Computed example of a mutant assay.
Amino acid sequence: MNSETFLLSLPEKVDPNVLEGLETNFHFILKQPDGQDPNEITVQVHDGQVTAEKGLKGEPKCVVKTSDENLMKLLKGDLNPMMAILTGKLKISNQSEMLKYAKIFGLM
Rank of each mutant, 00 (worst) to 15 (best):
K89I: 02
E97L: 07
K76Q: 13
D47R: 13
I85H: 03
L30G: 04
H46E: 14
P60L: 01
G35L: 04
P81T: 03
S93N: 06
K103I: 04
I85S: 05
N2H: 09
E40Y: 00
F26I: 06
L56V: 05
D47S: 12
L7Y: 00
T42N: 03
K31F: 00
I29N: 06
A52C: 08
F6V: 10
N80M: 02
I92V: 15
D68M: 14
L71Y: 09
F28K: 00
S96Y: 00
E23V: 07
L10Q: 01
Q36W: 00
G88W: 10
L75D: 04
K89G: 08
Q44S: 15
S96L: 11
Y101G: 00
F105H: 11
L22T: 02
G48A: 12
K54L: 14
F6L: 05
D68P: 03
V43G: 09
E53W: 00
S9F: 00
P33G: 01
S93P: 06
L56E: 10
G55S: 04
D78I: 02
G106V: 12
K100M: 12
Q49Y: 06
Q32T: 04
G55F: 08
Q44H: 04
M72E: 13
K76D: 14
K73T: 00
L22M: 14
L56R: 13
N70K: 12
L75N: 07
K54R: 15
E12R: 12
E59Q: 13
M108L: 15
E59P: 00
G58A: 06
G106R: 11
I104H: 08
L86T: 11
L30T: 05
E40P: 01
S67P: 03
H46L: 13
Q49S: 09
F26P: 11
D78N: 13
G106H: 13
S96T: 12
L30Q: 03
M83K: 13
S93L: 04
M83I: 11
K65V: 11
G77T: 10
V50A: 08
H27Q: 05
L22H: 05
L30H: 02
S96Q: 11
K100G: 06
S3H: 06
K73G: 01
E97G: 05
K89W: 05
G58N: 04
M1F: 09
L99Q: 14
N80F: 02
D34S: 03
L86N: 09
A84T: 06
M108V: 15
K61G: 14
H27G: 09
L99A: 14
K89Q: 15
V63R: 09
T66P: 03
P60W: 09
F28V: 03
H27V: 05
G48N: 10
E40V: 07
A102K: 15
L99T: 11
G21P: 09
L90I: 07
E4F: 01
L7F: 01
H46F: 13
T5K: 03
A102I: 11
H46W: 07
Y101V: 01
K65M: 13
D34E: 11
L99F: 12
V14M: 05
P33M: 01
D78H: 07
E53R: 10
G55L: 04
T5H: 06
